[in-house]
Design a protein around this nucleic acid. Structure first.
Length: 669
DNA sequence: TGGGGTGATATTTTT
DNA sequence: TATCACCCCA
């Protein structure tokens, strides 16, 4: 497929920094990938001097594979397509010394960090009720490039801020002594580094001669500063974004960064991509009209050549249960009439809890479905255990990992022993792991305990050596076997089934690690593998999800970037969308963008539903249709339902019968 | 060590 | 109202 005039202009524009305002479905990934190939093939820039940055691993993988397709077999060796965090990790790993870290530092995930904060809170204030708030506050500060010292100055009055500011410095010191960083540090530290060391920045500006940023409206302060630093005066930057799809302000994204770019680069060129290749005219008209209610720095209007399409349906239902039933039966009858696949349908909603009833109804009808979200692979206890072992193998200073695994599986190293060990290590200013080998420890502990600790540590040293010299993955297998981890799982799971499933997770982790190792080539050490794995989620290996024929159940946030022929945007009610808390905060613009994102996912048909009543806290609460429905072009809407009152029992029976009937038709046809 | 009882919480989530 | 995390006790 070729490029349109605007896309072509954006690909070819190299005279300075470029901002591409890419509306929904306007082919922004196509633009970025073509530009990368253009830079390589036409401009002769070597791939290792080009970096493309995305937010998610999924987007990064997608971009990589599409560049590979465009290159037609010719490998773009050394091309850096990565997430912001991987890029930061890359910088950190090359500049550990300048940052005062030792090689092979660990990356702590959000849980580990919360754990550390909980411990600190307990110790300092013996009150850990505010862990989440404090963690969130520190993280926000880091994202805004505020360090511990500055935080102290910023915190006056607000209780959580005071608490967080008081802990921030200690938190950082602990991380440093663990030789560990958190996710936010992966951006924060490089930005700091570049500000303090112009010579190092210079090296990186030479290494990355052209930078492309995807989903630019989602960048936070730190990420923007990283982009600005790397871009430098040369201005070799293409940022692609859509202010109307900014839906992550609540976690620090600064859509203002779009306008800021214009300020910081006065010679910024702006190109708009307004032709949409996804949706019908009606859907786009609705999207445009809705989003016109938001203020705009950059005006933009989507158009298409795909025809006007079917009217948008708006269905009023009696209850949330009824809503699920109606949507499912609409899907069934539509599928029957149009001979479509289940995968052509998506049900989009504001909050995860809304998925439940749809899930239940789909399951009752034996309709396969795919549910977004859920527990991430890396939050399973068994996966976290193994990851902690890996971290400890690589970085013996990682006390956080040490504490997690020292007695898992049971090694008869109880809390008392660990506490004494911690006291000793603290006094000597060394890691828990190092302390296990010290003779002085033997005077503090009963001999048996000291011996067990030393054996444990020695076992890890041996494994680490093996991982260093031979095949790292084999060393990991040895570790799992040596720790008797499987036995421990069997003893600590509800039943055999769970134990098996959990062990399967462990093996999946190992298999995945093996694959990462193979992909990475021979020069990947255990440390490299572990660092990479800390930034990935095994769940977004994707493939199965896409190929399986499933109805998709997604939050509006999770739906961004995806498209479906037939979309149901459910729960179009005041206090759901826009959400109550946003109404109360007087900020419904982001909610409107959320609705906009939902609408623009649809290719052919779009159905809104809202319920007259909804169960909330056990009671049926009356509901109002969302104000956003009123902002849509009424000529393009077809309203159904809501008018007649039917006996609920009778209705329920009728609904069930209808569904069963449809299912029968489908399976026979 | 595990099960039951209790209390907090009910927007969105990636790395 | 339903769920879930966490705590305590047997």
């Amino acid at each position: 497929m070729s490029l349109n005039a605007q896309q072509r202009a954006a690909v070819r524009y190299l005279e300075g920094p470029l901002l591409v305002l890419a509306g929904a479905g306007s082919g922004k990934t196509r633009l970025i990938t073509h530009k990368i190939v253009h830079l390589i093939k036409t401009c002769g820039i070597t791939p290792q001097h080009i970096a493309a940055v995305t937010f998610t691993n999924k987007a990064s993988r997608e971009m990589q594979s599409r560049v590979a397709d465009l290159m037609g077999g010719k490998k773009a060796q050394g091309l850096r397509v990565s997430t912001f965090h991987s890029l930061g990790l890359n910088i950190l790993r090359r500049e550990t010394a300048a940052l005062g870290y030792r090689p092979n530092f660990s990356i702590l995930d959000a849980d580990d960090c919360s754990g550390l904060i909980r411990d600190l809170l307990r110790r300092e204030f013996s009150d850990d009720s505010q862990v989440k708030a404090v963690h969130w506050q520190i993280s926000s500060w880091k994202n805004a490039m505020v360090d511990a010292e500055q935080a102290l100055a910023l915190a006056d009055g607000d209780a959580v801020k005071n608490l967080a500011a008081g802990l921030y410095g200690q938190y950082q010191r602990h991380l440093k002594s663990y030789n560990a960083v958190d996710f936010d540090d992966l951006i924060f530290l490089p930005v700091r580094l570049f500000a303090d060391h112009p010579d190092i920045l210079d090296v990186w500006q030479n290494r990355i001669r052209y930078l492309l940023v995807d989903e630019y409206q989602d960048t936070n302060s730190g990420q923007y500063q990283l982009v600005r630093a790397l871009t430098g005066p040369r201005g070799a930057l293409t940022a692609v974004g859509d202010d109307d799809q900014s839906i992550y302000a609540w976690r620090g994204a600064q859509p203002e960064n779009l306008a800021l770019l214009q300020q910081d680069f006065p010679n910024l060129k702006v190109i708009k991509l307004e032709q949409n290749y996804r949706s019908t005219g009606r859907i786009l008209k609705a999207a445009n009209q809705l989003i016109a209610n938001n203020p705009h720095v950059f005006q933009k209007a989507l158009w298409c050549e795909l025809g006007y399409g079917d009217p948008l349906q708006v269905i009023e239902t009696r209850s949330d249960e009824h809503e699920a039933e109606v949507v499912v039966s609409e899907i069934l009858s539509h599928k029957f009439k149009q001979r479509t696949d289940y995968r052509d349908y998506a049900i989009l909603y504001r909050g995860n809890h809304q998925a439940r009833l749809f899930e239940k109804t789909l399951r009752e009808q034996r309709i396969p479905y795919f549910l977004s979200g859920g527990t991430s692979f890396f939050s399973y206890v068994e996966v976290k255990d193994i990851m902690a072992y890996l971290r400890l193998l690589v970085n013996s200073d990682d006390d956080s990992a040490f504490l997690r695994v020292v007695n898992v599986p049971r090694r008869e190293i109880g809390p008392t022993t660990v506490e004494k060990l911690a006291d000793y290590a603290g006094g000597r200013g060394i890691s828990l792991f190092a302390a296990c080998f010290e003779l002085g420890l033997k005077t503090q502990l009963p001999e048996r305990a000291a011996t067990r600790l030393e054996q444990f540590a020695q076992w890890l040293v041996d494994l680490g050596d093996r991982g260093q010299r031979g095949d790292p993955v084999a060393a990991v297998r040895d570790m799992i076997a040596g720790a008797n981890y499987e036995l421990w799982l069997q003893d600590n799971s509800k039943d055999e089934k769970t134990a098996e499933r959990r062990m399967a997770n462990v093996w999946e982790l190992v298999t995945w690690m093996q694959r990462v190792a193979e992909q990475a080539g021979e020069d990947k050490t255990l440390a490299d593998l572990v660092a990479h794995m800390s930034l990935m989620d095994i769940l977004d290996r994707g493939e199965e999800g896409n190929t399986a024929d499933c109805v998709h159940l997604l939050t509006l946030h999770a739906a961004k970037g995806l498209e479906f022929p037939h979309v149901f945007l459910v729960g179009m009610e005041e206090s759901l969308l826009p959400h109550r808390s946003s109404i109360e905060a007087g900020d419904i613009e982001e909610e409107r963008r959320l609705a906009y994102v939902g609408i623009t996912r649809a290719r052919k048909t779009l159905t809104f539903t809202f319920s007259a009543k909804r169960k909330r806290g056990g009671e049926m609460v009356p509901r109002e249709p969302s104000r956003f429905l009123a902002e849509l072009p009424s000529d393009d809407l077809e309203w159904q339902g809501g008018s007649r009152e039917v006996d609920p029992v009778q209705r329920q029976e009728r609904g069930q019968a209808h569904l069963a009937n449809l299912r029968g038709l489908l399976s026979s046809g």
